[in-house]
Design a protein around this nucleic acid. Structure first.
Lengths: 233, 233
DNA sequence: ATTTTAATCAAGCGTTCGTTTAAAACAAAC
DNA sequence: GTTTGTTTTAAACGAACGCTTGATTAAAAT
């Protein structure tokens, strides 16, 4: 009760940063804005995190950590293939639903010109590649076919992330008080459901269906006019 | 020959901005850096574009304009469905291939806190929604089923964009002189093909396959335990 | 020959950036 | 009640930010 009622300053800074980075992007948010949102002094950020980029590091680490717990928790090779696909879709959807802003920041931030972030992302992507190979093999996919791998590499994550980004943007569009002509027209034209449990149950089911049958079709796909240029290391 | 040899200043500013925005993100790039890269004085940017945000507007407009030329150029309803899917995938891949940086900037920039950009994007997205309805109908998709629409809404664009973002990032990873342990390990572990015409022909074919069969599976999908909660406006 | 227009430049406006410092406030421990 | 270590504060550092100004140049139009 001695001030434990409110979250400690570090957590408030962290939460404010996630929220602001998600909405504006990492570079567009200043430390002063984070401090103000978190109701702390500017130098608290330095005190708890060091540099601004260290907040981003913490965000990326938390996100990928949770992300990999998610995709690893889909049973082993004894589980039927379609069931595993259903599980991975369902888990991913739940992950993004529970960590929308966290995932938006971690997955959207362009790392190319921030070497430390680039390295961090590469470290995690390296893990992911290894983790997914096993699933691809079970699906019957030729993991030496670089084209097929390039097509499906990040399909699931990307599709789901895009959905939550659209949902996130939509929420902000609706909250904007003064809407332009185009915006009002767009709102009228789009049919947006309630994003509740029922929606995401159906969403996961349909996405799993699409993913499973899509994958099966390219596993079976062997073009006639192609010689084996699939192991071009 | 009177200085027409080099592109005019406005074009140099525009090209520099696209390249820098793609690599670092809009907010992380300053006008001074754009001017320096374009080899012009800072005030030329104001002279030709006005505000910094006006460069972004021009980029977004050019991108979406080309984008819609692309997705509209896939024949009409008399064209066989699978052929139209093949066409739209092929065209989209060619579009992203020819305009990678332009598309990265236009599609990745977070618009929520820049009202003018938000409006611009909404204007274009509104057009897209209308344009794709016709194709969905031909595919046999129930366009009143908000869940199915939510699943496939931006699937194609998102998948292809992700591929080119990965390719873009990979190029920069390889160009970095001092690579860390993780990076070297990642490079060794990944098999990256030559991204030439042959690759993208096969890539388009496989993606079209995945998309077509995935779509067909969800068109046919009618869950038993669901009553009609699909018109929840 | 004179005026108009378009293009370019150096310099600087006020503001905000990420970061740091040194000291105050506070807690618990002795 | 003093000490000790943690948390918080105000103030300020130099650098970079977006943007503007006023002068200069060269070509075009009159």
């Amino acid at each position: 009760m001695t001030g434990q009622e409110k979250k400690d300053a570090k957590q408030r800074i962290y939460d404010a940063a996630i929220s602001l980075f998600a909405r504006k992007g990492y570079a567009a948010v200043g430390v002063r804005e984070i401090a103000k949102t978190a109701n702390v002094n500017i130098s608290m950020i330095c005190y708890y995190f060091g540099k601004k980029v260290d907040i981003l590091k913490a965000i990326i680490n938390e996100c990928y950590d949770k992300y990999y717990q998610t995709i690893l928790n889909i049973g082993d090779e004894s589980t039927p293939t379609q069931e595993r696909v259903r599980l991975i879709v369902r888990n991913l959807v739940e992950f993004f639903r529970a960590n929308t802003e966290l995932a938006m920041v971690a997955l959207n931030t362009l790392p190319i010109d921030i070497p430390e972030i680039m390295e961090l992302k590469i470290k995690w992507m390296s893990r992911k590649s290894k983790a997914t190979i096993e699933l691809y093999t079970q699906l019957g996919l030729d993991t030496n076919d670089v084209v097929k791998i390039n097509v499906i590499r990040a399909v699931l994550t990307t599709i789901i992330l895009e959905h939550f980004q659209f949902r996130y943007a939509w929420k902000h569009i609706m909250q904007t008080p003064n809407k332009s002509k185009y915006t009002r027209e767009f709102i009228k034209q789009e049919t947006i459901p309630e994003y509740n449990d029922a929606f995401y149950e159906k969403y996961s089911e349909i996405l799993a269906e699409l993913y499973f049958h899509g994958l099966n079709s390219i596993v079976a796909h062997n073009p006639a006019s192609e010689e084996g240029n699939n192991t071009t290391k």
